[in-house]
Design a protein around this nucleic acid. Structure first.
Lengths: 159, 159
DNA sequence: GGAACAATACTCGGATAGGCCATGTCCGAGTTTACCCGG
DNA sequence: CCGGGTAAACTCGGACATGGCCTATCCGAGTATTGTTCC
């Protein structure tokens, strides 16, 4: 199991976008993070489709957060990039083989599937309990309050 | 993010192996579950390397659980098949770009990495709280106590 | 009859191809801006 | 000087190659069995 690389990028981008009220182009935010701009655009597109970002075309266009950082959970971002499907998908092994159960016995998910679903729920609950605002605050605290300011200035600077 | 298909197979195989004290060949347990035998062998090999199963070569050989089902957690099986690495791997984005932090500022994991680690821990804790014995008991309960018996007989039957 | 030996059959184990999804990239559609021209 | 029109530049959006990992498979190394042969 490996999580898409774009998840990390998307989270950092959302944190950085909290520092700009004006739209930020994909190329600019990509350069800020030192990541390939064309590929990041693809992920920002996913965030836009998920309703996390709002895109404005044309000059002075770019991406903006659609709502307050405290209203965007990490889970929202992860699901937007990685897809809403759970990591584990039951292939109904119990119905196969010489001792396969009939469909009437398979109304409820099997025990294995339920166990994985419980773990998946715990994972999502943990991600849902953290917001972009929390991340921004933690990053600010890690740098003793000298991280977000330069980002805000860099995004506001023209060029 | 997609979990390897072999995880489901491995869990079902471990549950079935609780019903046999004698070694069960890979081909036989594969036929029981209606899955490709050659590919399952690869996963059983992983379980063997992880110390969950013990393999015995030669005629009347096969795989046996190394310890009591209550001592084998679902997490053990998942890690054996899927690998011990967490799903999220931090690429240290904060060190890149024009505002990249110096190495002296990156002694501790970044906030994004920590958030994902917390979720990963929750996921693993949930999986660690369920054992193969629990799964076997639940499957038995789902079928009103008529699932494990036939499996035991089918595995014991020759041919 | 018993024991040692050799051949056999069956098992696991690692090395080997193929398919699908994530990665990485590109160019076209749409929109705002700025400039230019006419009144 | 002001307003309208046009051209341009910049943006996003989706369509297009590429690589790596999961899937799937095979054959060789090793071992317990079994049959045979000799004492």
């Amino acid at each position: 199991m490996k999580l898409s690389n774009g998840v990390e990028w998307a989270l950092h981008c959302c944190v950085s976008l909290t520092q700009s009220q004006a739209p930020v182009p994909a190329g600019r935010i990509a350069k800020l993070h030192g990541i390939p701009s064309a590929y990041l655009a693809k992920h920002l597109q996913s965030l836009s489709q998920a309703g996390i970002l709002r895109s404005t075309p044309g000059p002075a266009g770019g991406y903006v957060l659609t709502r307050a950082p405290a209203q965007i959970t990490v889970l929202d971002v992860v699901l937007a990039i990685d897809g809403p499907e759970p990591a584990f998908r039951c292939t109904e092994i119990r119905r196969k083989g010489p001792l396969g159960l009939g469909p009437e016995k398979c109304r409820t998910p099997c025990a294995v599937s339920r166990a994985m679903a419980v773990a998946d729920s715990a994972w999502r609950a943990a991600l849902k309990g953290i917001t972009i605002a929390d991340l921004a605050r933690d990053i600010e605290a890690d740098s003793s309050g000298s991280a977000m300011g330069p980002v805000r200035q860099w995004l506001a600077a023209t060029g």
